[in-house]
Amino acid sequence: MISIKVNGQNKQVEDDPQTPLLWVLRDSLDLTGTKYGCGIAQCGACTVLLDGTAVRSCSLPVGSLSGKEITTIEGLAKDDTLTDVQQAWVEEDVPQCGYCQSGQIMNATSLLTRNSNPSDEEIESAMSGNICRCGTYSRIKKAIKRAIKS
C-alpha cells in the first residue's frame, strides 16, 4: 500500500511501486483528466504538478512520491472557480479535440507560478515540451498571455 496526496486528499493505492503515476491516477483513482499520449515523457499530455512544478506522470513511479503534493487538472479549480489559466483557456476558446489541453494547462500553470511575466521566447521554450496535434499553439500562447494580464 502506498500513500500519496492528490489534490489535497490522502489516497492509499495498491499499485506496484514501479507503476507510473499516470496509470495510478487514471486506473486506480479514476482521475482521467490526465492523459496518456506517449509514455516516454515526449508529449506532455500527462503533465501534473508535483509540489507545484510540472512533471511527466507517465515516467514517474508512484513509489517515489510519498509525502509529495500532486495536483492534477481536476484539482485546479477551487469551489468551481476556475484558475486564471483555466479562465484564459475558456476566453481564448483554445481546444480543438481537447486531448492534450489538460497537460498544456498544467504546464502553463507551472510556468506562471515560477515566472509571473514570461516573454514570448520564455513561453515558447517552456511550452515546447507539450505536443498539440490539432495545432492550437497560437491560441495556447494567447491564453497564457491573457492569464499573465489577469
Binding site: 482521467t32 483528466g33 487538472i73 476556475l82 483555466q86 475558456v90
Partner: peptide
Amino acid sequence: VQNRITPKIVRGEKHFALDLKRPGMVY
C-alpha cells in the same frame, strides 16, 4: 459561439472513451 467542449476540457472532466470505467472492468 464557444466550442461546446471547452468548459469540460479545461476542468479535465470525463470526455473521451478512454476516460470511462465500468464496474469490474479489466484492461
